[in-house]
């Protein structure tokens, strides 16, 4: 099993506050890896450092054998890492199809094949019938799906998903889980997700990293991690366990 992404001793401070503290982990090619933790644990900051939106204060990020920390977000994407945003950011005035096609244009020079690729992805994410609608007119679950579709259209080797299940109904969550699992199985795409919806994490992830106050407190298979007393304490507050 080859390592696709490796984070080593990543740290980030904001005005004296340590958001991420010496976090290290590795994601194998073809794996689905989850980062969980209570609100404010530093998950999104960790994510931003991988995606090139933030530069780490310390530590390195290695992707497919090359250092990518400090690269700009567009350069990171061109290397093969696509991300979604926790607070979705569709191109509001453009159609659903154009949104996805802009992602597809990254690796396709001609418009016809980009559009065809976009349509195939919309089909896969059950958005095909809404492709002519403007993105601003979509409901939140649809926008979440659009966010994933747009990232997928860039043909990433690694897909970073930032809470794409939040706000979805259980049936919609199951559908999204099924889509991601199929993608992973059929194309071998590696997925790194931040997630609050444990139902999705348990169903998808082969390994889980737990962050608390910016530090990694547990690491392993989902069913082991959720039984870890330190993890339970971090979610419930220490007093609830003690």
């Amino acid at each position: 099993m080859t390592t696709l992404l490796a984070a080593a001793n990543l740290s980030k401070r904001f005005a004296g506050l340590i958001a991420v503290n010496q976090v290290s982990f590795e994601v194998a090619a073809g794996e689905i890896f989850a980062v969980i933790g209570p609100n404010g644990a530093g998950k999104t900051t960790l994510f931003a450092m991988i995606a090139g939106a933030l530069t780490p204060d310390e530590g390195t990020v290695t992707f497919a054998g090359a250092r990518i920390d400090g690269l700009t977000s567009d350069a990171v994407c061109r290397r093969g890492i696509a991300r979604t945003f926790q607070i979705v950011r569709p191109f509001p005035a453009l159609s659903v199809e154009d949104n996805v096609m802009i992602g597809a244009l990254l690796r396709r020079a001609d418009m016809r094949s980009a559009r065809a690729h976009a349509r195939a992805i919309l089909e896969m994410l059950d958005l095909a019938d809404k492709r002519a609608a403007t993105a601003s007119s979509l409901t939140l679950p649809d926008r979440k799906r659009l966010e994933v579709a747009r990232a997928l259209a860039t043909d990433p080797k690694l897909l970073l998903l930032d809470e794409v299940m939040a706000g979805l109904r259980p049936t919609e969550t199951d559908r999204m889980v099924a889509i991601l699992r199929k993608l992973n199985r059929d194309t071998g795409m590696t997925i790194l997700l931040i997630e609050h919806v444990m139902r999705a994490v348990m169903a998808l992830a082969s390994r889980v990293l737990v962050l608390h106050h910016g530090a990694a407190i547990a690491h392993g298979a989902p069913k082991d991690v959720v039984r870890d007393p330190a993890v339970i304490a971090s979610y419930l507050g220490a007093e609830a366990v003690g």
Binding site: R83, R89, F91, P92, I102
Partner: peptide
């Protein structure tokens, strides 16, 4: 407007951060 550059322009106009996350050199 119908070219690749045209779509990249619109992406940057609509949301530069999101455009960059899709690999567009804004």
């Amino acid at each position: 407007a119908r070219s690749r550059l045209g779509y990249q322009w619109r992406a940057v106009r609509e949301d530069e951060t999101a455009a960059r996350a899709l690999g567009i050199d804004a």
